[in-house]
Simulated assay, not measured.
Amino acid sequence: MTTTLLQVEGLKKYFPAGKTNFLGKHTQLLKAVDDLSFTIQEGEIFGLVGESGCGKSTTGRCILKIEEITSGNMQFMGKDITNLKGKELLQLRQEMQMIFQNPYSSLNPRLTIRQTLEEVLKVHKIATGNQAKVRIIELLEQVGLPRDTMDRYPHEFSGGQLQRIVVARALAVNPKFIFADEPVSALDVSVQAQILNLLVSLREELGLTILFVAHDLSVVEHISDRVGVMYLGQIVEMAKVEDLYAEPLHPYTKALIQSIPINHPKEKKERITLEGDIPSPIDPPMGCRFASRCPQCFALCIEEAPTFQEVKPGHFAACHLYISNEK
C-alpha cells in the first residue's frame, strides 16, 4: 500500500510584471505556475519535465517555501504546510531539502567542506564538535568521497565531486523529501550517470522521496517512477514512466519524446516539428495553451481549455483529442 507524502492542490505562483499604476502596483502578472495539482508517494521519484521557463523549478521552490505561493494548498505527511513560518518552517527544512542546479554557485567558496556541512548541523542542532566530524565523514562516504575531502575548498573539486558534496549537504539533516532542481544539467555527460545512479541508490538506502526536475527526457526516463509533463505553468500529461514513454498521449509530450537524440547513426526516427512561439505567460490563451503550436489543433482547442482527466488507468492528460467526445 502506497502512502501519499506530498499533496499539492491548485498551486498558483504569479510574479508581478509590466509597469506600475499610480498606486505603485504592477498592472500585469506573470503566471509562472497556474493551478497545479498532483501527489507524490512516499519513496517515489517523481519527474517533472518541460521546456525552460515552463514553471518546473518554481513549482519545487514553492513546495519548499523558498517562494511564497499566490494561492493553493500543500500538505506534507498529512500536515498543511501552506502557511508555515518561523520555527515550524525551520522544522520543515529538516524534512525537505534541495539539490541545486549549479554546484559551482551553491557552495560558499570561502568555506571548507567541513565548515559548510558543520553549518547545517549547527543550525538544525544536530551535532557539534567531534560528533559533527563523525557525521561529516559519514556523509562524505555516503556520497562516494574520501574523508580528507572535508578540509578542502570548493575550487579544488570537479563539477561531479561538487554535486556529490551538495547532495551530502542535503542529506545532513536526514530529510524525507528532496527537490532535485536539474542536478545534472551543469555536468559533463560522462558524470551525469554517476550522479543519477547515486540518487537512485540513496533513495533505496534511505527511503528518500525525490521530486526530480529536468528538461532532458532521457535523464527523466532513467531515474523516475512517474513523470509529469509541464507546459506554460500547467501539467498537460502525467503517468508512470513506462506508460508515458511507450504511449504518450498529449501532442506536446510526443514532440518532446521524439526530440530525444538517437543512439545509433543508422537509427531513424520520425520527428514532430513544432512551429510558432510559446505564448506569453503574462497573457496565456483562453483555450489550450499548446494550441498555437499543436499540429493536431482544431476549433475547440482554441475556444476552450481542456480539463486534466484520467484517459487510461493511471494515465492523465489535458487534451481535447481524448475528452471532446464526452462533452
Rank of each mutant, 00 (worst) to 15 (best):
M1A: 15
Q7G: 06
E9I: 11
K13H: 12
Y14S: 04
F15K: 02
F22S: 15
L23Q: 11
G24K: 12
K25V: 09
T27F: 02
K31M: 01
L36G: 01
S37C: 06
T39L: 03
I40V: 15
I40Q: 01
E42G: 04
F46V: 02
L48I: 14
L48H: 03
K56M: 09
S57E: 00
E68H: 11
I69N: 07
S71W: 02
Q75K: 13
K79N: 14
D80R: 13
T82A: 06
K85T: 15
E88T: 13
Q91H: 14
R93P: 04
M98N: 04
Q101D: 08
N102P: 06
P103G: 11
S106D: 14
L107I: 12
P109Q: 09
R110A: 12
L111C: 11
I113S: 04
Q115S: 12
L117W: 03
L117P: 03
L117T: 00
E119R: 05
V120D: 01
L121F: 04
K125D: 12
K125Y: 11
I126S: 07
A127T: 11
G129L: 03
G129F: 01
G144E: 05
D148C: 10
R152C: 10
Y153S: 10
Y153R: 09
P154V: 02
V166P: 01
A168T: 00
N174A: 14
P175N: 09
F179A: 14
A180V: 02
D181I: 05
D181Y: 02
V184A: 08
A186G: 03
L187F: 03
Q192Y: 03
Q192K: 01
I195V: 13
S201T: 12
E204W: 07
G207V: 10
T209K: 01
I210F: 07
A214I: 01
H215T: 06
E221P: 00
I223Q: 02
S224P: 10
G228C: 08
G228M: 02
G228T: 08
V229R: 00
Y231R: 15
V236Y: 00
K240E: 14
D243W: 03
Y245G: 08
Y245T: 07
E247V: 11
H250A: 06
T253Q: 02
P261L: 09
P261H: 08
H264D: 13
P265L: 07
E267R: 14
E267Q: 15
S280P: 10
D283P: 03
R293E: 07
P295M: 09
P306T: 03
E310V: 12
A318G: 08
L321S: 05
